[in-house]
Design a protein around this nucleic acid. Sequence first.
DNA 1: ATAATATGCAACCAAATGGTTGCCTGTCAA
DNA 2: TTGACAGGCAACCATTTGGTTGCATATTAT
Lengths: 104, 104
Amino acid sequence: MDEVFKALADASRRSLLDRLHARNGQSLNELCEGLAMTRQAVTKHLAILEQANLVMAVKHGREKLHYLNPVPIHQIGERWVRKFERGKLAALSELKRQLEKRDE
Amino acid sequence: MDEVFKALADASRRSLLDRLHARNGQSLNELCEGLAMTRQAVTKHLAILEQANLVMAVKHGREKLHYLNPVPIHQIGERWVRKFERGKLAALSELKRQLEKRDE
DNA sequence: ATAATATGCAACCAAATGGTTGCCTGTCAA
DNA sequence: TTGACAGGCAACCATTTGGTTGCATATTAT
């Protein structure tokens, strides 16, 4: 879970996920197109995404195709975001109370 | 949004959020208790959480009380996780197909 | 066979990160 | 009013991070 959060912390990596979400199964070169970064930088980002299991790569001839794995993102939603949804309203009203107290 | 992801990337910061989720409105010293870190390190983490709007601090005498703001986490769920839920099943079956192809 | 294409590997670099120590300031209680 | 307690500020440090360049390797097309 920690690796997933770390992987998601970088905007370039999130945009790589976006690109794969738009079109799955892209090669390294395809994923590089239009980015202000060298291919090697993208390789490193993809390696981090693979380690976090957010992306899976398959070699196909001389190309390496990248596929999105939606499971970890789903788990972030289920195991983490959801936890904070519980007690959300209580926290919000507490927050409001404190903000109002400042004007006393 | 980027600041939120960056703030969530660190396990110590996520555990601070957990602590506040367990009991809201804790002081700096309370949040330090039991952690293998100096108070100043915790201060820095809290500053990052505040900048990301995940935590709001209110001075109360000589104490600084910290309150959880559930909104950014909620937004991560709504604006980000949800996006990848769309097309999740397609991505999953594509992934399965590629995994099976490896055994050919 | 050979050239072009797609990717991999390793060394290097600057900047950001997570942490420390030392000292200063503000507030409460004796 | 004088400690003691809660917190703030700044300088410093090691490691990680995000990126680069240069070269090597593997596959495809001519």
